[in-house]
Lab assay of single mutants.
Amino acid sequence: MAAGGDHGSPDSYRSPLASRYASPEMCFVFSDRYKFRTWRQLWLWLAEAEQTLGLPITDEQIQEMKSNLENIDFKMAAEEEKRLRHDVMAHVHTFGHCCPKAAGIIHLGATSCYVGDNTDLIILRNALDLLLPKLARVISRLADFAKERASLPTLGFTHFQPAQLTTVGKRCCLWIQDLCMDLQNLKRVRDDLRFRGVKGTTGTQASFLQLFEGDDHKVEQLDKMVTEKAGFKRAFIITGQTYTRKVDIEVLSVLASLGASVHKICTDIRLLANLKEMEEPFEKQQIGSSAMPYKRNPMRSERCCSLARHLMTLVMDPLQTASVQWFERTLDDSANRRICLAEAFLTADTILNTLQNISEGLVVYPKVIERRIRQELPFMATENIIMAMVKAGGSRQDCHEKIRVLSQQAASVVKQEGGDNDLIERIQVDAYFSPIHSQLDHLLDPSSFTGRASQQVQRFLEEEVYPLLKPYESVMKVKAELCL
């Protein structure tokens, strides 16, 4: 049975990233139509530049190519590739079939990587351009969430054990800070992308030097003109047959890092959902379990974690691919890159769409948070109580021993009897502590235990987050809708 299948058929496997999760716009960027249309555009740009620099290419040939950029006979191309065992030459023939007058000058002087690699770089750039505003929107939604809850005390956790208090907004800023680093890295790697350009079979530009009869300047002009037509500021000066596969490492490393950030955020949300302090959106008709109707599973956060793990592992592909590119190139890269580049971007696209949807509907339960604080705060307040007693004339050592005994009794009630923490009640009825009984409410005010959390939130948002989001103001209103 021949390899390949009808990918629109229910009898043929289709990647869930495309069929179930990723956005239509990201799927289109990695589609065959987008790819092969870009090949034709690159052939047109090459012909236009070659004509401008004096090669015998007519206006009629150029116009014929322009008129057929979208006229792609995919069936013919597939048949040609089956016959020739070469995808680029299959599309040269297919393009030439609908451009008979231009057929002889299509791909003039070029090698397969002229269309293959340059198209990949265009796709990487455009895919990054799709991700950047999506990530900015996630940051914006979380920034709104953090600002609104900047002063809401909550129990902090280290080692997932109760620690000092923080605020809900401050905790959210930990998430935002990681995503801001990801946004900066995505922008950097996007701006650092260079075009492969017009380089020939081993990167020496020998074929173009021959076409222009040894004119170095025209060869350099050709490279520059096509690079500018493709919208790049610069091209690699040095290439082998391909652009260095280190570029793929750079791009997928940034995406993998984004995956790590999203995994951490969504894990926190899942843990908070278990504590009943916070939940992701839950639709009115949504079913959490087929057997347990009360369940409210954090399905979206779980999906993000599941896909983020996949995204983090994909960076190993370009690392290994770059390491086995012998001399000017081997074909070890080809099949692998067809999979890992598309999957990385479709996965990143999915987790950003999902995280935006989550961040637009996060639900906080202040009463649950308050109750958990009441359970733990008495123990945390013991040092403040000791200091207040010393100020009232008591002995630190005597007070410490009193607190120690009462704390152990209260802990026994919590752990052995399943009761509430009654340390404060014990202190309130103990005559030894009568000098500070009137101060206990103040000493137990949760806001006095959150330090500068709310001020940190305000400063972080104003100095770091809002300036970073400013270039994306025009796209901030787009909502994230999930079908599944």
Rank of each mutant, 00 (worst) to 15 (best):
Q455P: 15
Q285T: 13
V315K: 05
S31G: 11
V29I: 13
E417Q: 13
F460D: 02
V414G: 04
S261M: 01
Y13G: 08
S253G: 13
W43P: 02
C483E: 12
Q325H: 10
C305M: 05
Q320C: 11
Q221G: 07
S454M: 11
D445S: 14
V324M: 10
M292H: 04
P467M: 08
M387Q: 15
L307G: 14
T239C: 14
L275R: 08
S12R: 14
L341R: 06
L423A: 05
P378G: 05
V254G: 11
E70K: 13
D398P: 05
Y243C: 15
F449A: 01
P435F: 04
E60T: 12
Q41N: 12
V368D: 01
R337K: 10
E370G: 11
H310M: 07
I139L: 12
L444V: 06
S9M: 14
C483G: 15
L155C: 02
A273D: 10
P366H: 10
Q51W: 03
A291K: 01
M476I: 14
P10T: 15
G104W: 07
A90E: 00
A146Q: 02
L53T: 10
Y13F: 10
R296N: 10
G156C: 06
P10D: 13
R33E: 12
T204A: 09
T202K: 04
R329V: 04
L311R: 03
K295Y: 06
W326M: 15
D223Q: 10
A47Q: 01
E50M: 07
V247H: 10
Q320T: 12
G259V: 02
R33Q: 10
D317Y: 00
S447E: 11
E250D: 12
K276D: 08
E80C: 12
Q416P: 04
L352S: 08
G451S: 03
E213R: 14
T167C: 04
A381E: 11
L124T: 14
A206G: 14
R452K: 09
K66S: 14
L108W: 14
S323L: 02
G96V: 10
E280Y: 07
R396Q: 06
T52P: 04
A163M: 08
K233Q: 13
I62L: 13
S306W: 02
M299N: 08
V324D: 12
L461W: 07
A90M: 00
M299H: 14
R196Y: 09
S261K: 01
V475Q: 13
S438N: 09
K199H: 02
R459L: 11
Y114C: 04
T354P: 02
R171E: 05
E464Q: 11
G419P: 02
S31I: 02
R270V: 02
V315L: 14
P471K: 15
S19V: 04
K367M: 08
A206C: 10
G54Q: 08
L307M: 14
F30G: 02
K415C: 07
R309T: 09
W43G: 01
L132Y: 14
E220Q: 11
K187N: 12
N68C: 09
Y21M: 00
